[in-house]
Design a protein around this nucleic acid. Structure first.
Length: 618
DNA sequence: ATAGGGTTAG
């Protein structure tokens, strides 16, 4: 009878059927059996959704609930909208449990309380969370390894690295989880030397260890190490799990190593992982960022897993970064029709696409739809897109007014967007104002000088251009890149008759080489130049690998030149994939599967040229 | 007797 009831209970998927079993248990008298009741309570508070109230009522009517029952309810509350109830239940439990046996009930309780504290969010500060959790931990008589691990996690989450280390050292016993969470903790803190140390000192590496290591390296930008660890894993005959695959694909996306990503995709296709949504979503992102937006689309359309908001948003972002504005709008509609509501993240690439494709009306519509239909409060990024929308369309005044009425204070990115618009449309007066605002924020970078000098160049104010150029700080790396750039430009001019044109109207005024020089210093060109200067000459490599490596170098080179953070790198990454995917560019690179670096470099130059031509059209 | 801690995309 016991077994039958338990079996039936396990089959229950809704509150209604559970109620049926409840009645059955009452009739047979099994209801008072603590084991059976515990199972019933667990089912209502953990397994079935929306039945926590029911579980609470059951609990309140049960005389002398045992530790398991308390823990079960605490767990139920920890993942409910009111995690505070976990704490109050715990306080209740502690009052009662003093009567209980010597067995510490807290080893299980602790983990649930930790979850409750973590889900407390805005109601409890980070500090309060740590204090509370550690108080509970200290109360435990003989914490087991799980409790120790949870305590270490608490310290890491509170940002207290030293306490984590201290706890880890004083643990009477460590299991692989203990090591894994140290690795992840160091990774989150950016302590890569410690991450490597922990990984090498681990005696037993389970699949979480491997995937944590891969994730750690990916999150800290050590992409080539990701690939080598991934290959080590396979060399040892181990199977990667979905987290490792996601990490590797994310590294491919960020480093632009399409070649590696494609191999991983092949593996995914032939495995059970193609049913995992996480992996599919990362594939979409990888293909988009590597410039293969059609491949990304193919993944979206053929994935066996059910598409979620991330799948749609990744695809929209992919289309957006390649300038396919109309398709972005269309995909947004498809997404809405499929019953998935776009969120604040979705609208960033949507608005970005509108501004870049010049879809003024649609951009406007989307912005108000976001606010009025979906009740999403615009963030600084959304506002930034709108500034770009007006600015790019030539209405720099409107963009400026828009900034002034924003409910959030404008940051450097907003001002730089406007400065960019001024440089396209040649508004010297406003550009100088904006430059002033940037200086007030103390966030100017070398790119701002380039933009401002472009504004002057557009207006034909060559003396100002010169002043800025001289004031610009140049280190050895930038100098190296500038030298190479000069060489490239010369080559383009001599061999291709290329005249650098940044903006339409300037060109009439471009007369001598010096002036030309000052309007051609765009970051991505500098990065390409730097990457090429560093290329080992005369090597013969398969063209796609070469493309990938060079483009990755561009990202690194860009970071080295400007000392900028990863956000800028990602932006460069987007531009780079756009460059690669530009129809002519792709055809050019694919026309000759094998060539030496010198020839290949020529093609890069041609692509820069085409990129420039695209710019002119905008 | 029942459960718990560690890696996870846009």
């Amino acid at each position: 009878m016991n077994q039958l009831c338990l079996h039936l209970l396990n089959q229950c998927k809704t509150l209604k059927t559970v109620d049926h079993i409840h009645a059955c248990l009452l009739k047979t008298g099994l209801f008072s059996d603590p084991y059976i009741f515990g199972k019933l309570l667990h089912h209502c508070s953990v397994t079935i959704s929306d039945s926590l109230d029911y579980a609470t009522r059951l609990f309140l009517h049960y005389p002398n609930p045992n530790v398991f029952m308390y823990n079960t309810l605490i767990r139920g509350f920890s993942e409910s909208p009111r995690p505070q109830n976990s704490i109050t239940t715990f306080i209740e439990m502690r009052r009662e449990s003093s009567l209980f046996s010597s067995v510490s009930p807290y080893s299980f309780t602790f983990a649930f309380l930790l979850k409750a504290a973590a889900n407390y969010g805005s109601l409890m500060t980070e500090c309060g969370r740590v204090d509370f959790s550690m108080k509970v931990f200290d109360e435990m008589l003989e914490p087991n390894v799980v409790a120790w691990n949870a305590a270490v996690t608490v310290c890491f989450r509170g940002g207290d690295l030293e306490s984590s280390e201290r706890l880890f050292e004083s643990m009477p016993f460590k299991d692989s989880t203990s090591w894994n969470l140290m690795l992840a903790g160091y990774a989150k803190a950016g302590e890569m030397e410690m991450v490597r140390k922990v990984f090498s000192e681990m005696e037993v590496k389970d699949d979480v260890s491997w995937s944590s290591m891969i994730t750690a390296l990916t999150q800290n930008g050590c992409f080539y190490e990701v690939f080598s660890v991934f290959m080590d894993l396979q060399r040892l005959g181990l199977r990667p799990n979905e987290v490792s695959l996601t990490g590797v694909l994310s590294a491919c996306a960020q480093a632009g190593t399409f070649e590696f990503g494609r191999v991983v995709h092949g593996f995914v296709e032939k495995s059970r992982f193609s049913w995992i949504i996480l992996v599919n979503n990362t594939l979409i992102d990888m293909y988009s960022k590597c410039g293969y937006v059609a491949m990304a689309r193919l993944v979206l359309e053929t994935m066996p897993a059910t598409k979620n908001i991330v799948s749609w948003t990744s695809m929209i972002a992919g289309l957006a970064m390649h300038g396919h504005g109309e398709e972005v709008i269309q995909l947004l509609h498809e997404m809405e029709e499929s019953g998935i509501k776009p969120d604040r993240i979705t609208f960033v690439p949507v608005l970005y696409a509108c501004s870049h494709a010049g879809l003024i009306e649609q951009g406007h519509e989307c912005f108000s739809k976001m606010k009025n239909v979906y009740n999403i409060e615009p963030s600084i990024e959304h506002y930034g897109c709108m500034v770009d929308l007006y600015g790019r369309a030539g209405d720099v005044r409107k963009a400026y007014e828009f900034i002034c009425q924003m409910p959030v204070p404008p940051n450097d990115i907003i001002w730089r967007t406007l400065l960019g618009a001024c440089s396209i449309h040649g508004n010297v007066e406003l550009a100088e104002q904006v430059k002033e605002r940037l200086s007030e924020l103390c966030l100017t970078d070398s790119g701002d000088y380039v933009l401002l000098s472009n504004v002057y160049a557009v207006a034909g104010k060559w003396n100002n251009v010169e002043t800025i150029r001289c004031g610009e700080k140049q280190n050895n790396i930038t100098k190296e890149a500038y030298d190479k750039l000069r060489e490239i430009m010369l080559k383009l001019k001599v061999e291709g008759g290329y005249v650098p044109e940044v903006v339409g109207s300037v060109l009439h005024h471009v007369e001598d080489e010096e002036k030309e020089d000052s309007v051609t210093k765009h970051n991505e060109k500098l990065a390409v130049a730097f990457g090429m200067a560093k290329l080992c000459k005369g090597r013969r490599l398969w063209y796609e690998i070469e493309v990938a490596f060079t483009l990755s170098r561009m990202v690194l080179a860009h970071a080295e030149i400007t000392g900028e953070n990863i956000e800028h790198n990602v932006k460069l990454n987007e531009r780079k994939s756009w460059l690669l995917n530009s129809c002519n560019g792709t055809r050019l690179l694919k026309s000759n599967p094998c060539r030496n670096v010198e020839e290949y470099a020529d093609d890069i130059l041609k692509i820069i040229w085409m990129l420039e031509a695209e710019r002119r059209k905008m």
